[in-house]
């Protein structure tokens, strides 16, 4: 169970992306976050696994407070949070199999990781999950040879292979065409249910949220303005979520893929992270 309380995020530019957000994801619920662009949807998702550092507030996953974890503890806890990205964020020049198995990196020694010496059981599971997401037999293809829909399926397979306690999904379909979007959402929510994994999904298309999620959280200007079932999302609620969002100047926070990286060894400085906002 994921509990977010009074979460705030203020960017160095002074933009208040999140202003006291509180919400929960319980059991094997699929919860979607909707809202206009710039409302803080992506920021919220990325605060959970601290790809973006929250300014204040609390995030508790299965009894563990995430906001105060040290770097090392954070790495360990991140293994329990599968993430699916808008731009897939797969390692383009590696094979499908390496990408899926990279979901186990958190459990492997660096030397084994370097030699691609994966656990037998992980390999077996990887083959199975590739079949289930519908890209079976493509394990030796390089990701840059795949279509968008296939890439996102590989992205899902990678996240599932982590055997996470929660799936964080950031705009999974905005790089896909409408038909593929429905297929991918259908498959994602189905697998999550089968595997009993709760999902926090940030989504642009309200239709997809209505069709595939159990609960919808409406976010506007960094504040929760709606929290209810798809059935409760009436015209009125939509107006609150989207109309008031228009009054505020768009910051572009949502639309930019974040280019940040904290660890020095990864080669990208913190300076560039802050610049992109």
């Amino acid at each position: 169970m994921l509990t977010i309380t009074d979460l705030e995020k203020v960017y160095p530019t002074g933009d208040k992306a999140l202003q006291g957000v509180s919400m929960e994801v319980d059991g094997n619920e699929v919860v979607s976050i909707i809202g206009p662009s710039g409302a803080g949807k992506s920021t919220l998702i990325k605060c959970v696994n601290r790809l973006t550092e929250p300014t204040s507030g609390s995030i508790v996953l299965d009894g563990e407070e995430l906001t105060t974890l040290s770097k090392k503890e954070l790495r360990k806890t991140r293994r329990d949070m599968g993430m699916i990205f808008q731009e897939f964020n797969l390692i383009e020049r590696l094979t499908v199999m390496e990408n899926v198995l990279s979901g186990r990196l958190g459990y492997m020694g660096s030397w084994d990781a370097f030699r691609r010496n994966f656990d037998d059981e992980d390999v077996q599971n990887a083959y199975e999950i590739l079949d289930r997401v519908g890209v079976g037999g493509m394990e030796n293809k390089r990701v840059d040879e795949l279509s968008g829909g296939q890439r996102q399926r590989v992205g899902i397979a990678r996240a599932i292979l982590q055997r996470p306690k929660i799936l964080l999904v950031d705009e999974p379909t905005s790089a896909l065409d409408p038909e593929t979007s429905f297929e991918v959402m259908e498959m994602l929510t189905e697998i999550a249910r089968e595997e009993d994994i709760p999902v926090l999904i940030n989504i642009h298309e309200v239709e997809l949220a209505l069709d595939y999620t159990d609960r919808i959280v409406g976010l506007t200007d960094g504040e929760v303005v709606f929290n209810g079932t798809p059935a409760e999302l009436d015209e009125n609620a939509r107006d609150t979520i989207y109309r008031s969002g228009k009054s505020r100047e768009e910051t572009g926070t949502e639309s930019q893929p974040q280019s940040q990286n904290e660890s020095a060894s990864s080669g990208i400085s913190d300076a560039s992270k802050e610049k992109s906002f």
Partner: peptide, 17 residues
């Protein structure tokens, strides 16, 4: 940067990154 971010999000060590 997205590919780097993905490895970090899964709990990869700096070396894995």
């Amino acid at each position: 940067a997205g590919q780097v971010e993905a490895i970090r999000a899964m709990g990869g060590s700096p070396l894995d990154v």
